[in-house]
């Protein structure tokens, strides 16, 4: 890689209390790159994302845009532009769609007028959010909530968007729409993406590179296309 990586994870260990989950994971995402992280249930994928975004006990080194964020707080990490869309979408069910979007910009200093403008841009991309602006987020469908979660994350002005299982619980057509949106965001704004997915086929389709995590260690690392075309690898790690 000629470029300095945007995200540079080196020898990362993480644990929940006594349970060690990650054993020295190294991973990079370059500016403008789409990277997918694959692996079976229980491989440590969510933990890896949560460790990167500052939500689990961790040791090792995590650098984002040249800044060491290994010990940074979640809020500080978000304000640097490393923004996560958590598994299960993590919208605020009791708040309105509009309020959910406003919360996206929580870590930034923006005037009310500027924020309103930015929200209208998001609504242009996801028109359904405009129609539902005054409704409680808990009343949205799964796909709409995923759109809301992505929209909210975009309002934090991410340089790297980290998504945990964006297809979880969604119908296939909705999943496809979510991935189309991600592709667009990457193509139009050069947004870097790190995506954890069970749906290997679809995610490898939009990714530049892929990692396969198993039992807390990176087992495979390479261009997405190569992994997709390697029948042996697919059978061994991806189960199809």
């Amino acid at each position: 890689m000629p470029l300095v990586p945007l995200l540079d994870v080196d020898n990362l260990h993480a644990r929940y209390g006594q349970a060690r989950v990650l054993h020295g994971v190294s991973l990079t995402v370059s500016p403008g790159e789409v990277v997918v992280l694959l692996g079976a249930n229980g491989a440590g994928k969510t933990t890896l994302l949560r460790a990167i975004t500052g939500h689990v006990e961790r040791t090792g080194s995590i650098k984002f845009a040249g800044t060491d964020i290994t010990r940074a707080s979640p809020a500080a990490i978000v304000s640097l532009g490393l923004v996560q869309v958590p598994e299960g979408r993590g919208t605020f069910a009791d708040l309105t769609v509009q309020e959910n979007l406003r919360l996206g910009a929580y870590t930034r200093r923006v005037t009310a007028a500027a924020l309103a403008l930015e929200i209208s841009e998001i609504v242009e991309r996801f028109p359904i959010l405009g129609e539902r602006a005054g409704q409680r987020a808990g009343l949205l469908s799964g796909g709409e909530q995923q759109m809301l979660a992505i929209g909210r994350a975009l309002l934090a002005r991410p340089r790297l968007l980290v998504l945990d299982e964006p297809s979880l619980g969604l119908a296939p057509t909705v999943t496809r729409a979510v991935f189309d949106t991600l592709r667009e965001l990457h193509d139009e704004q050069g947004l870097s993406l790190l995506v954890v997915e069970q749906n290997a086929d679809l995610s490898l389709g939009i990714a530049d590179r892929a990692y396969v995590l198993e039992a807390g260690e990176i087992q495979v690392d390479g261009p997405a296309a190569a992994i997709r075309d390697d029948a042996g690898l697919r059978r061994a790690y991806l189960g199809y």
């Binding site: 929940y16 349970a19 989950v21 440590g44 969510t46 039992a215």
Partner: peptide, 11 residues
Amino acid sequence: ETPHDTDDTRD
């Protein structure tokens, strides 16, 4: 807080 992804750790 049950972690989603914990696994036994085979080294």
